[in-house]
């Protein structure tokens, strides 16, 4: 096996455990150490690593009840420089293979948090607009949703718009809702996306779902930006 990032061969010590249950590593030890997980205290609402129970940004969201459609968001990794490079190559350069790096971490991160609702919840990946999906060839949120041990459904549709990553916080929060729904769901929904930055995208999607009969909306994102 070779490291997906630095292409160096990965040498694993053979043990009885990985002889019977092969555990295929996608990154070498060094590259793996560059991925920083969110550990320790985190904001209960948005997963940001901080000492407060609810961070400042989320307190601001809580003041606007009708726009705050998300129960909470759970993220796995921090957005460090290495992660930025990794995501840039994955999303913008289009190296689909790099998505597999996150397979294990996504499963392991998902199970303890969402164990209670595993049976009846449905994962909904945040869609890309048609043009962008054509340009990129794949939807990174869908790849992540497919890693999850629950059923995933594409029920949202996104209208064309500017890239979120090119806007400021204020512009992002005040932007109009780009989502429409193609099928209503009356079960709890776990929205899946790659990055939670201000939370606007997830809340826009949550709003559309809630207006169409969904009882509760959660967020599951790979990275807390």
């Amino acid at each position: 096996m070779y490291c997906l990032w630095c292409s160096e061969p990965i040498i694993q010590q053979l043990t009885w455990q990985n002889f019977f249950f092969p555990d295929i590593k996608k990154l070498c030890v060094y590259c793996d150490s560059l991925l920083e997980k969110i550990d320790g205290d985190r904001c209960h609402k948005c997963s940001r690593q901080c000492d407060q129970a609810i961070c400042f940004d989320c307190q601001r969201w809580e003041k606007e009840k009708e726009r705050d459609t998300l129960v909470f968001n759970y993220s796995i990794f921090q957005y460090n420089i290495f992660m930025q490079e990794l995501i840039a190559k994955w999303k913008y350069r289009g190296d689909v293979e790099l998505g597999n790096i996150f397979r294990d971490a996504v499963r392991k991160g998902f199970t303890p948090t969402f164990a209670a609702m595993k049976k009846h919840a449905i994962a909904v990946p945040i869609p890309l607009s048609k043009d962008r999906e054509k340009e990129r060839g794949f939807n990174q949120a869908k790849i992540l949703a497919d890693f999850l041990p629950i059923k995933s459904e594409l029920v949202l549709h996104r209208m064309e718009g500017e890239k979120q990553s090119k806007k400021s916080r204020k512009e992002r929060i005040q932007s109009i809702n780009p989502f429409t729904i193609t099928k209503s769901i009356n079960k709890p929904v776990i929205l899946v996306d790659d990055i939670y930055t201000t939370g606007t995208t997830l809340r826009h999607a949550g709003k559309v779902l809630k207006e169409n009969g969904c009882p509760e909306v959660f967020g599951f994102t790979l990275i807390r930006g």
Binding site: K89, R93, G94, D95
Partner: peptide, 10 residues
């Protein structure tokens, strides 16, 4: 696709 030269365009 080729992953080797992807930085130069896929």
């Amino acid at each position: 696709y080729c992953r080797k030269c992807i930085e130069m365009g896929k």
